[in-house]
């Protein structure tokens, strides 16, 4: 009995030890992130104002705002999405409606997309530079940057759209074909509309990934911080701006923090829209079934 009691005590000591480790790890994580986010909020708000968003940078970005950079960022994202969305949705529709589960076509395409999703962003940058800027002759331009990001977000869009389509119940597909509807009609009227929240969530995730991207843009869309007048102009994305101010401009930290705060707020907004859409999609599926 004495031995038994000792083991118990030992066990509860080990339990206490585990709790200590877990609680302190959690505390470290929360502390680190409070520190980081706190710094961004404190330093970021020093410069952040309406005029910061609406004026051009001056003195290499040390003063002035980020208006042209926001415009370039928006244009790059716009190109990335306009190119990637139709191809992504069409590919996902092909995979889930025109190929068989476990079929060779689906396996090969899924595998190649999985690999593509794992390629480091700097490698996308190298590819974009070699292919879009030089081989296609687009040069350092918003177009090159947007197309490079389109390649990056394509696997995300395909994966989420495919997940959305595969959660549409088969009975609707059967119903549609029993009514003599073509697969295209079923897709446009029933399946894609039912998968819209998933597609939108994927879109938001893709935009989030693209907006956060720096490495793939440095040698594709370039550094020029003027207001772009066309898509052939080089344009500096917000993330590139933060990088440049931090690394290459002495005394650019204050504006870098303000820009980072803008970017982070933007990303949080985009992410929460994605999460809301995913959740709503989930609950909708429950009520529908």
């Amino acid at each position: 009995m004495a031995e038994m009691a000792i083991t118990r005590k030992n066990n509860s000591a080990r339990d206490l030890g585990l709790m200590l480790v877990v609680w302190s790890a959690t505390a470290i994580i929360i502390a680190a992130f409070t520190w980081i986010i706190g710094d961004f909020i404190i330093h970021g708000f020093e410069r952040l104002s309406w005029s910061f968003l609406t004026t051009s940078p001056s003195n290499a970005g040390r003063s002035g705002g980020i208006a042209p950079i926001l415009v370039s960022t928006l244009l790059i994202l716009l190109i990335a999405i306009t190119v990637a969305l139709p191809i992504g949705v069409a590919t996902a529709a092909f995979l889930s409606e025109f190929t068989r589960v476990g079929g060779r076509v689906r396996q090969i395409t899924t595998l190649s997309l999985d690999i593509l999703a794992g390629v480091p962003s700097i490698v996308f940058g190298l590819f974009g530079n070699a292919f879009f800027c030089i081989w296609l002759g687009l040069g350092f331009s918003i177009l090159s940057g947007g197309l490079t990001l389109a390649c990056m977000v394509l696997p995300i869009l395909i994966r989420t759209t495919q997940a959305g389509l595969s959660s549409v119940p088969d009975e609707w597909r059967r119903g549609a074909s029993a009514l003599g509807l073509s697969r295209g009609a079923a897709l446009t009227h029933i399946l894609l509309p039912a998968a819209t929240p998933a597609i939108a969530a994927g879109l938001m995730l893709g935009i989030g990934r693209a907006a956060a991207e720096t490495a793939a843009l440095i040698f594709t869309s370039g550094y020029v911080d003027r207001m772009p007048s066309s898509l052939d102009d080089s344009g500096r994305a917000l993330a590139v701006h933060i990088y440049d101010l931090t690394m290459n401009v002495a005394g650019g930290d204050a504006n870098a923090y303000a820009s980072a705060l803008v970017l982070i707020s933007l990303l949080i907004l985009i992410n929460s829209v994605a999460v809301t859409l995913t959740n709503r999609y989930g609950s909708q599926r429950i009520t529908a079934s």
Partner: peptide
């Protein structure tokens, strides 16, 4: 999840400063 969404350039900025 929020931390996962902070862009790498922001981590770099914070790290450097």
């Amino acid at each position: 999840a929020l931390l996962a969404g902070i862009p790498s350039v922001a981590y770099g900025l914070w790290g450097l400063t």
